[in-house]
Amino acid sequence: MTVLELKAVACTTTENAQTFLPYLNDTFDRFNILTPCRQICFMAQVSHESGGLFYTEELASGAAYEGRAGLGNIHPGDGVKYKGRGLIQITGRANYKLLSDALEQDFISNPTLLGGKNIKQCTPDQLKYAALSAGWFWTKANLNAIADKINLLQPIDEGANLEYFKAITKRINGGFNGLEDRLHRFIQGYLSMKTNQTPSQTTAS
């Protein structure tokens, strides 16, 4: 993915796209997000969750997650400590532990390694893990398989394509919050990629 393509799909600034591009390209390689359709789907979702590659930590305090056993928050203070971080908002002690095992980093002891408020306040390591954590979640949810069903030669916002895109959204969001914005980002990303690739290269089959 190029800076221009990333800027388009993320609906972000050139500066933000340039900052995150190397970390995202590493994420694509590590988690096999390599076809145009996989990358556009991934970035449409991730850029919505992060406010255009800006936020790497949710704005709320995390207190609402306190005592949520389903998230693994079994100790006092876990809700705030393990609030949503990374480009796709990894949340809860249990997910931080799974991510720690997968990436071989101790996010339990150092949860802010996943993100430092926003792109302006992140260290290079925080940017790296903000991106990698999103790729890990994407793979854990088996979203490449759904993205592969989308036909880039058909509109994304109708028919089977829309149902596949909604399925991806639901696995990430738990519902369909921000669906229109996510679709908009997908369309912008596709149009940008289309200017540089032939239809056969942008087909997800």
Rank of each mutant, 00 (worst) to 15 (best):
Glu5Ala: 12
Ala10Met: 04
Ala10Leu: 10
Cys11Trp: 09
Thr12Gly: 08
Thr13Asn: 04
Thr13Lys: 02
Glu15Val: 12
Ala17Glu: 04
Gln18Glu: 15
Leu21Asp: 14
Tyr23Gly: 03
Leu24Phe: 06
Asn25Gly: 12
Phe31Tyr: 13
Leu34Phe: 06
Thr35Gln: 07
Gln39Gly: 01
Cys41Gly: 04
Phe42Ser: 01
Ala44Gly: 12
Ala44Pro: 03
Gln45Ser: 00
Glu49Lys: 05
Glu49Ala: 04
Tyr55Trp: 14
Thr56Gln: 11
Gly62Trp: 00
Tyr65His: 13
Ala69Gln: 13
Gly70Ala: 06
Leu71Pro: 03
Gly72Met: 07
Gly72Val: 05
Gly72Leu: 07
Pro76Ala: 07
Gly77Pro: 07
Gly77Phe: 01
Gly79His: 06
Lys83Ile: 10
Gly84Ile: 06
Arg85Trp: 00
Gln89Trp: 00
Asn95Asp: 09
Asn95Ala: 05
Ser100Trp: 01
Ser100Arg: 02
Asp101Tyr: 08
Asp101Lys: 14
Leu103Gly: 02
Gln105Leu: 05
Asp106Leu: 04
Asp106Gly: 04
Ile108Phe: 01
Ile108Arg: 10
Ile108Gly: 04
Ser109Ile: 01
Thr112Cys: 11
Leu113Met: 14
Leu114Ile: 08
Leu114Val: 07
Leu114Glu: 02
Gly115Cys: 05
Gly116Val: 09
Pro124Gln: 11
Leu132Met: 10
Ser133Asp: 08
Ser133Pro: 02
Ala134His: 02
Ala134Asn: 04
Phe137Ser: 09
Phe137Arg: 03
Trp138Cys: 02
Trp138Tyr: 08
Thr139Asn: 13
Thr139Arg: 08
Lys140Asn: 10
Leu143Gly: 05
Asn144Ser: 06
Ala145Ile: 05
Ala145Asn: 10
Ile146Met: 01
Asp148Met: 14
Lys149Phe: 12
Ile150Asn: 01
Leu153His: 15
Phe165Thr: 00
Phe165Trp: 03
Ala167Gly: 11
Lys170Ile: 09
Ile172Asp: 04
Gly175Pro: 08
Phe176Met: 09
Asn177Tyr: 10
Glu180Ser: 15
Leu183Ile: 11
His184Thr: 15
Arg185Asn: 08
Gly189Thr: 07
Met193Gly: 11
Thr195Cys: 14
Thr195Ala: 14
Ser200Gln: 15
Thr202Val: 15
Thr202Gly: 03
Thr203His: 15
Ala204Thr: 08
Ser205Glu: 15
